[in-house]
Design a protein around this nucleic acid. Structure first.
Length: 575
RNA sequence: CGGGCCGUAGCGCAGUUUGGUAGCGCACCUGCUUUGGGAGCAGGGGGCCGCCGGUUCGAAUCCGGCCGGCCCGACCA
């Protein structure tokens, strides 16, 4: 017997009008369909239907975790400050870490993630290489005090996450589990019905991390990514090898100084002189942690990737407005020729073969054309600096990259010994020597995934759930509740479907047909069974498939079997 | 943290410029009619106009402070 519910007694406060605060489809529809309500900025209550869908996502995650041998547990949401001091993150994490004190003045934080707790838990019990590997996970509420919560569940402060942590003696073992996790994450996305890409992700300030993000493709996604038909994909910030689409200028010409009054941008410059933007070179100014001035040269049509800039120049930061005054350099006319003394000049690898550069002259309102590296100026460091973009060549095959936006729904990480070393979590290896654990961590944004699904599955009428995440699978909609012919037919269909193992709700409210149809489409029940006078008189009901809008007339006698079969088929397609 | 905007009934909004004691639509309650795509008519209930202070005979409206929210950016990932 599966779930059978009555609309009349379900707490589903649907809204006819769009809430003013919601911009994105997922946010708007979660509110309108009565699935969530806001309690404070970035903090939401899950109402019964929202909770049902959320729970289904959790269950899928749980099954996939269990399938690769990770074990479920539960850690505290409130964590003592001492552990965060040990790892160094009490000071490193910044204001996103929500800190609080108990009545005795002891310091705690709300867990934004659980590396500290898990490492502290395990370090006393896992003593030998014989105990390894171990993989543990939990599904739990997390808190990050986001500067600017927005987009409903996509960027909340309180959110539900599955986080897993693994401990290994060898890199091979870590790699093996990491691969298993990545496989599980792919299956989770598939079972949620998400169109997704695993992408190479930002390796961050701490180099050498191996990490993959799973991106649900969405117009409104926060992340920009590039991908190729060959299967390679990357977050633009992390795409290490952008293969530019424009050839180098290989014909040397004399350097020429030109007056360029008022031309501050590459676009202005290119237009005024009738050249392409990629035939100029853009120079961005930044500084090192020590305050040394840095010039970064990229092709005129390209954006600088700040993440890459930082790996080329440790501690790199772009200049603020005041810095331009401090260094006394003309914003809009910067270039590598005669740079201010002491400045470090870095140029993008893609400019190596270009011999005629159109660059700023470091004199207000003047530029040089035809400047040649080695003849007219020197480059101190060559590095990969540009932000990858659609149209670039694929670094693995001969293809051309395409662009997309995505929502990061999950990420897998090889942490190495970062936490085990700082927190003294070691085991005895085969020779009896103490070694820090090799660790991996793996997160799935559960509540965020719910929003991501809706971003991909909605239309002008509401949500059109994939059956695996729908709060309920079938809605039986009797058009006239009081009718003594219609009602018994509807009620027995409802009971029979439930007996057949289908999650079914009956809309027993004394509402007009239009209201019921509108709510059913808004909430997005995948299959809607319309029972009306007209049909029942002919011995039939009407089945509507929410996703496609297709309608089919079925004899009452065959309806249960047919619908149960359709649901079963839809389930197995996402199993 | 910068820039823009907003807090008036459960929701969406008008009223604020020009001060005179609060209104519209939806929702809710009652009755009648209606009943296959968000019904019609009639009647009704619901407001510390975000909070505090000031100006004034009188403040939703003017002034100051605070709180909360939304959008863009910065930040974060």
């Amino acid at each position: 017997m599966a779930v059978s519910l009555k609309m009349s007694s379900l707490y589903v406060p649907t809204l006819k009008e769009d809430p003013a605060e919601a911009e994105l489809a997922s946010h708007r529809l979660l509110l309108r369909a009565g699935m969530i309500r806001k309690a404070a900025a970035g903090i939401y209550t899950f109402l019964p239907l929202g909770w049902r869908s959320l729970h289904k996502i959790e269950q899928i995650v749980r099954e996939e975790m269990d399938a690769i041998g990770s074990q479920e547990m539960l850690m505290p949401a409130v964590q003592p400050a001492e552990l965060w001091h040990e790892s160094g993150r009490w000071s490193d994490y910044g204001p996103e870490l929500m800190r609080l004190k108990d009545r005795h003045g002891r310091e705690f934080c709300l867990g934004p993630t659980h590396e500290e707790i898990i490492t502290a838990t395990v370090r006393h019990e896992l003593r030998s290489y014989r105990d390894l590997p171990v993989s543990l996970y939990q599904i739990q509420v997390k808190f990050r005090d986001e500067v600017r919560p927005r987009f409903g569940l996509l960027r909340g402060r309180e959110f539900i996450m599955k986080d897993a942590y693994s401990f290994h003696a060898t890199q091979e073992s870590l790699q093996e589990h990491y691969d298993a996790m990545a496989g599980a994450y792919g299956r989770i996305c598939e079972r949620l019905g998400l169109e997704y890409r695993p992408v190479e992700a930002d390796s961050g300030q701490i180099g050498g991390k191996i990490t993959t993000e799973f991106m649900a493709l969405a117009e409104n996604g926060e992340a920009e990514l590039v991908y190729c038909d060959c299967g390679w994909a990357a977050n633009v910030e992390a795409a290490t090898t952008a293969v530019p689409r424009h050839p180098a200028v290989t014909e040397a010409v004399p350097m020429e100084k030109v007056h360029t009054p008022g031309l501050r941008t590459i676009a202005d410059l290119a237009q005024a002189f009738g050249v392409a933007e990629y035939d100029t070179v853009k120079t961005m100014a930044g500084k090192t942690a020590e305050g040394r001035l840095v010039f970064l040269c990229v092709p005129g049509d390209r954006e600088l990737n700040p993440v890459k800039a930082e790996s080329a120049v440790p501690g790199f930061e772009l200049l603020e407005e005041e810095d331009f005054k401090t260094f006394d350099i003309p914003k809009g006319s910067l270039g590598p020729v005669d740079p201010p003394s002491g400045a470090l000049v870095v140029a993008d690898d893609s400019l190596r073969d270009t011999v005629a550069w159109g660059v700023g002259a470091n004199i207000n309102d003047y530029h040089y054309f035809g400047a040649q590296p080695g003849r007219d100026f020197e480059i101190d460091v060559w590095a990969d600096l540009v932000l990858a973009a659609p149209g670039d060549g694929c670094p693995v095959c001969n293809g051309t990259l395409q662009g997309a936006r995505g929502i990061e729904v999950s990420q897998v990480f090889q942490l190495g010994t970062k936490y085990s070393e700082s927190m003294g979590a070691t085991y005895a290896d085969e020779d009896g020597n103490e070694q820090p654990f090799l660790m991996g961590c793996y997160g799935v944004g559960v509540s965020r995934s719910l929003a991501a699904v809706i971003e991909q599955y909605n239309d002008e009428n509401g949500i059109a759930w994939p059956v695996s995440v729908a709060p309920l699978e079938v809605a039986v909609v009797p058009l006239n509740v009081g009718d003594d012919i219609v009602w018994p037919v509807a009620e027995s269909l409802w009971r029979d479907l439930a007996s057949a193992g289908v999650e079914t709700v009956i809309d027993d409210r004394d509402e007009r047909a239009g209201v019921k149809f509108a709510d059913a489409d808004l909430i997005g029940f995948p299959y809607q069974v319309v029972v009306g006078k007209r049909g029942v008189a002919d011995g039939v009901i009407e089945l509507k498939v929410r996703a496609t809008g297709e309608r089919e007339t079925l004899p009452i006698a065959e309806a249960t079997e047919r619908i149960a079969a359709l649901v079963a088929q839809a389930r197995s397609a996402l199993a």
